[in-house]
Write a protein that binds this DNA or RNA. Sequence first.
DNA 1: CTTGACGGCTAATTCTGATTAGCCTATAAT
DNA 2: ATTATAGGCTAATCAGAATTAGCCGTCAAG
Lengths: 205, 205
Amino acid sequence: MDTKQKILDEALTLFSEKGYANVYVADIAERVGIKAPSLYKHYKSKQAIFDAIIDEMNKRFEQQAQALNINGSDATADSEIYKNMSEDALLELGRQFFLYFLHDDYNKRFRKMLTIEQFNNKQLADIYTKLYVDDPLTYQGALLGMVASAGLLHTDNVEIMTLHFYAPIYYLLTVCDRDPAREKKALKTLDEHIKQFNRIYGRNK
Amino acid sequence: MDTKQKILDEALTLFSEKGYANVYVADIAERVGIKAPSLYKHYKSKQAIFDAIIDEMNKRFEQQAQALNINGSDATADSEIYKNMSEDALLELGRQFFLYFLHDDYNKRFRKMLTIEQFNNKQLADIYTKLYVDDPLTYQGALLGMVASAGLLHTDNVEIMTLHFYAPIYYLLTVCDRDPAREKKALKTLDEHIKQFNRIYGRNK
DNA sequence: CTTGACGGCTAATTCTGATTAGCCTATAAT
DNA sequence: ATTATAGGCTAATCAGAATTAGCCGTCAAG
């Protein structure tokens, strides 16, 4: 990773731990292994570093969205998979999603940074809402909708059913962000949540 | 409200909007209607103002906890109420809780401030977790447990049932904090959530 | 009535932290 | 071989904000 990229990387780490205002350019520089004034050979200002992070974040998420859309829109192909979704497969889906968001390094740091900065900046609030509220509901709603139309889940309100699936995942995610020591327990809770979800929405026949 | 108290009040408002580091003592002073140096007649430093807010917050929540415990521990008295809890009453319970947390001025500002500052300060993270994670689950778990033992809800796992009740409420709360324009829609979603919750956990007989 | 505490003000002062100036070295292109 | 550029450094500089100094009016207790 070149210096310019490393600056973004270390800055993101620090911003996600303390928030923009509590990070000094000297901190960033030290992590990168250079002195503060040298940062200015790469970025015009501290703010420019932050902006570059946001740009990169947007880029990544566009890519991710495209990747998801390719699968998501090819519903006929995907639906074959989900038509036969067992409880184990559902468990796996929820756990994968949770662990990906929890541990994926970029996701984790972006999310924490957005959490801190969301009230300072409408744009960041919107990104947060998109990433952790709207997109998961859309995506998981599409999946669960397919499972439902295959007859494995029963509801007359897919949207709320999806909320019932996702809200606990989101809730546990924020708990673990705040206190990683709770992760083990959260994973157990997650499993029980999904099992009960499956029981509840699966058995009303 | 005397000046000393007003300082806390205005400081809390500002901290909840922008976070500690982005608020200047001059901002606080201006809101209070005095000049910055006069603040120091009341508090030793900016940090002392923040600390006083935390102290007051702790005091309030101890009181609140006591109030809840009085009701909560007197389960025999309360259970009469919840034994006959209709869907409408359940709806009301969820909505009350949601609106109280969303609109109560202290709650709203404390929560937003904690959201911003949680990663800077383990103590704040713990307070957040207690207030918005553990306490609601305990309290609502007690209530729903009573409703369940009255035979109106059915589950073999009250803890997860409570998570299913509360997680969507928490989720909608954070959505509205981030974007108050979503409040109207969130209230509708909340109602549908509770109705579906009631249908799901109520009908498995 | 006078005095001392309280709480306000203006004008410094001090600190902190971002940014700029100006220099140096290595390396890659002409 | 020369030179331009990239990227690093140290030593200023600048700006913004917290804090302190020192003054003043009010008012309640003696």
